[in-house]
Amino acid sequence: MMEHMLPSSYAPPPEGHVSHSRLEKVLRSGRFAITAELNPPDSADPSDVYDAARPLAEVADAINATDASGANCHMSSIGISALLTRAGYSPVYQISCRDRNRIAIQGDVLGAAAMGVSNVLCLTGDGVGVGDQPGAKPVFDFDSLSLLRTIKTMRDSGTFLSGRKITNPPRLFLGAAENPCIPPYEWRPERLAKKVAAGAEFIQTNYIFDIPLFENFMSRVREMGLDKKVFILAGVGPLASARAARWMRSNVPGIHVPDALIDRMEKSSSPGEEGKRICVELIQQIREINGVSGIHVMAYRKEHQVSEIINESGVLSSRSELA
């Protein structure tokens, strides 16, 4: 987990790599990667970030710092990312296009890289209407693809979008999201291809609860040869209860939970355990799908279960240590 690089050092990345990211090393070496999402605190105390990171760090190659996901206000992703690099953790700095324009975002990218951040995840962002402050002004100056291309240009050509030169460009491993289990299903793989063309090097998907839908998506992805061009990490997470699953399905944008799973949760005498078991089973099934490079665990308010889930799934048991 430790990133042996001081935030202040600015060295060229290793041969064949674009960044110093541990996640990039794990993926490029062909190992099955684990990332996990940190629940951002509503607090200004750094120890709250470290408390949230500790249970994830046991198994995760990188920890995602969400950027006001669901349009709810929390500690910023750049703040969390900077704290995590200070403690030697490897964050994935999430950037949503909802709240900041191109001037702010390009500046933040440089700032984050200078703080030792080496992974970014470019996101569109949920609409402001679903959040805790629906009256906010939605920005959406970039979309996730123009954002990807912009950071790629900053990194590879050493210029801002204006063409102005960056003296020392940011070394970043570029990520994007995909959501295989929601419409328009037939165009999701094409959209993934577009994200790869824009500069995505790894993908973290939203929750996969529907294996047949995900398999359809992946078979088209393999047909298009995309699994050879981008590392795909499938999103998983434990459901808390049938009620919570139903609530999530109708209130959180982009989450599809099949009825069969909700039934299974409903019939269980201990839904918490059942949710965990389902998550372990999903990971084991996803692991068998060709072209999947890793797992992204989003265990909202169940962070303490993450390492148990990963260990029970057995996905790390055969993995060799990274040199």
């Binding site: 609409g127 959406f140 996730s144 693809l145 959501n179 929601i182 419409p183 328009p184 824009a198 944008p253």
Partner: peptide, 14 residues
């Protein structure tokens, strides 16, 4: 509503 120029977001409803 998000004025996306490159494809659908991840929130499309059923």
């Amino acid at each position: 509503p998000k004025q996306l120029r490159n494809g659908p977001c991840g929130g499309v409803r059923p």
